[in-house]
């Protein structure tokens, strides 16, 4: 376990010292903060727009980190031959794969945490600078005082600080009605990314970074449409599998649906719904499915890696 942790921590260190990670993180943070501007452009359902933008951002950037940072991590070890000295140490090859996997997952989760803090910050900041709150401010303005005065700016700064504190407080200790739901969605994203990361490790254990990146993104897209593919096969079945072409289509759809993970279970459209709707729950099935699927894919990666000749 100590050796797996050593490799995982070193992988995390490598990712943290990688420029691509920062570029992705800066983009994500800017986008999250920018959601305030989107709010201005929205006529109604502003809260929902901000929520879906934030959650979508966390999901997509989580995936991008898995693809662009993750895939290079295994390939670099082979390409730069650092694997030679690792393999000659008293460790097993499966320990190396698991170390890489957990290191990458740790990197992704730490980044999701950072993005979540910024997401909450923008949510709270918006509630403090909402029209209602601003009206209160205007009402309190003395004669001759106007927007843009030091007092106004001080108010905005104070709101910002309170938002950060509130975001941290909510995140760490007291999820309220809104954030409990958001946290559930983010946890689902984490589970989904655990599966995608396992695929990224599998692909990069035998192919080049570009090919691995393409395959990982494909897996994500197919995984998300897994249920639709099954529905399509049912549709074909209902129509009657009379022609050879229909049978072929049915079989292909069934095959793809069965060999790809069903990622739809981790996708919830909570952000588009009213808050009064029933909350999203991280259910046991989703957790077990995520753990089992990741374990299966990692076992495949170990199988490929176990007897591989490193050139």
């Amino acid at each position: 376990m100590g050796k797996i942790w050593a490799i995982a921590f070193n992988t995390f260190k490598e990712a943290v010292r990688n420029r691509i990670l920062y570029i992705l993180l800066i983009f994500a943070v800017v986008l999250l903060l920018f959601s305030g501007a989107v709010r201005e452009l929205t006529i109604s359902a502003q809260e929902k727009v901000i929520r879906s933008l934030g959650l979508g951002c966390i999901n997509i950037f989580g995936l991008l980190i898995a693809v662009f940072v993750g895939i290079g991590l295994v390939y670099n070890e082979l390409d730069k031959k650092t694997i030679y000295t690792i393999i000659s140490k008293p460790i097993d090859r499966w320990q190396f794969i698991l170390g890489k996997y957990f290191g990458l997952l740790l990197t992704i989760y730490v980044n999701i945490l950072i993005m979540t803090v910024f997401f909450y910050f923008s949510l709270y900041y918006q509630s403090f600078t909402s029209e209602e709150a601003l009206e209160k401010l205007y009402a309190s303005l003395g004669p001759g005082e106007s927007v843009g005065t030091p007092r106004h700016l001080a108010y905005l700064a104070w709101s910002g600080l309170r938002s950060i504190l509130n975001a941290l407080k909510t995140l760490c200790f007291f999820p309220d009605e809104v954030t409990a739901n958001l946290q559930a969605v983010i946890l689902m994203t984490c589970l989904e990314l655990a599966i995608i990361t396992a695929f990224a490790i599998l692909y990069s254990s035998f192919s080049t970074p570009t090919l691995s990146a393409i395959l990982t993104v494909f897996t994500f897209v197919i995984g998300r449409s897994n249920e639709d593919i099954i529905r399509y096969s049912w549709f074909l079945e209902r129509k009657g599998l009379t022609s050879a072409a229909a049978v072929m289509k049915y079989r292909i759809a069934q095959f793809i649906a069965h060999i790809t993970p069903n990622l739809k279970i981790y996708y919830s459209d909570t952000s588009y719904r009213a808050l009064s709707d029933p909350p999203v729950v991280v259910d046991t099935y989703a957790i077990l499915y995520g753990v089992a699927y990741s374990a299966l894919i990692l076992s495949l990666a170990v199988l490929v890696f176990r007897r591989r000749n490193f050139k």
Partner: peptide
């Protein structure tokens, strides 16, 4: 046996961020 041996590969390249 691996715990009792050391290995230096040709033209070694190591983690340059460490």
């Amino acid at each position: 046996a691996k715990a009792r041996l050391g290995f230096l590969p040709e033209n070694p390249y190591f983690y340059d961020y460490l």
